[in-house]
């Protein structure tokens, strides 16, 4: 069974019960992706599949055979951080760091949704494709990622600086 994970083709056999999250963490030792609730409620396990953000805990790995999966390890490395990782450091976007890989993958997926004009629950005009990443839009769109440490102010600033440098705070 073939998967492309962080640009590397991986071929392995799997128990169909294994979640994509457990495949990443337990089999491939990509432990950047975190397990919080294991039931879709916290976002710590967020990864990108063909560029779209999903919760890997609710995903059966077999269902994603043939897909391109990007985890936090694929977005940046210690020597070559993603610009959003740099912004998280600069704005104190984390304390314990447990939610951070999920926050970052989720924000990268979210930026793509904004570019494609996907509306949210707080988008006023449904007929426009030009969505401003305002404070309200950002908070609504990131509501699937919880942070127990309450690092939200820094998280919001880091995402806004990276993806909407000109938006009003």
């Amino acid at each position: 069974m073939k998967f492309t994970i962080n640009d590397e083709v991986i071929d392995l056999t799997l128990d169909p019960r294994m979640s994509l999250l457990d495949l990443l963490r337990e089999r491939l030792h990509l432990t950047g992706t975190k397990k919080g609730c294991d039931q879709g409620a916290c976002g710590a396990c967020t990864v990108l599949v063909d560029g779209e953000r999903i919760n890997s805990c609710l995903a059966l790995a077999v269902q994603y055979e043939g897909c391109a999966i990007t985890t936090i390890e694929g977005l940046g490395t210690a020597g070559d951080l993603h610009e959003l990782q740099r912004a998280f450091i600069e704005h104190d976007g984390f304390q314990c760091g447990y939610c951070t890989p999920g926050q970052i993958c989720s924000a990268v997926g979210m930026a793509g949704e904004i570019r494609r004009g996907v509306p949210s629950a707080v988008t006023g005009d449904l007929e426009t494709d030009a969505i401003d990443l305002s404070h309200d839009e950002l908070r609504e769109r990131m509501s699937g990622n919880l942070c127990r440490c309450g690092a939200h102010n820094g998280i919001v600033q880091a995402i806004q600086e990276t993806f909407a440098p000109k938006a009003k705070p």
Partner: peptide, 21 residues
């Protein structure tokens, strides 16, 4: 355009990640 209530109902549910799945 034709059924804005459907768009509004969907985006009122779950999270961005879950709606993508």
């Amino acid at each position: 355009e034709r059924f804005p209530m459907l768009t509004r109902a969907i985006v009122a549910g779950a999270s961005g990640q879950i709606r993508n799945m």
